[in-house]
């Protein structure tokens, strides 16, 4: 069963993102929201790590959090709340890293 992992902590000084990437299954998705979207900051180490995992169509970010933080990334699928709800149903379960 596939899992949508949801992370909301900044990847700088927190190991949720790196732990999540270690146990991410081949059919799992990753949704970044809140400060976790700083992982998409161009030129940053977390972005390089994310890109190395080749998530492509399985990597999502909450659009409002990208806009609030002035992060422009074409490496991610930006979603609004209706799309967040749809994603939570597309995957078999949602694992939020609280």
């Amino acid at each position: 069963m596939s899992t949508l992992h949801v992370i909301s902590h900044s990847p700088f000084g927190d190991n949720r993102l790196s732990s999540c990437l270690c146990l991410l299954g081949p059919n799992d998705g990753l949704l970044l929201c809140g400060d976790a979207v700083y992982a998409l900051q161009p030129g940053s180490e977390p972005l390089k790590t994310l890109q190395a995992h080749n998530l492509e169509q399985r990597l999502f970010a909450l659009a409002e959090d990208l806009q609030a933080r002035a992060i422009n990334s074409d490496a991610v699928n930006a979603v609004d709340y209706p799309a967040f709800v749809a994603l939570s149903l597309h995957y078999d379960k949602v694992n939020s890293w609280l």
Partner: peptide, 10 residues
Amino acid sequence: ADRLVCFGGD
């Protein structure tokens, strides 16, 4: 429920 969705942290 069909889905349990948790929210917390930042």
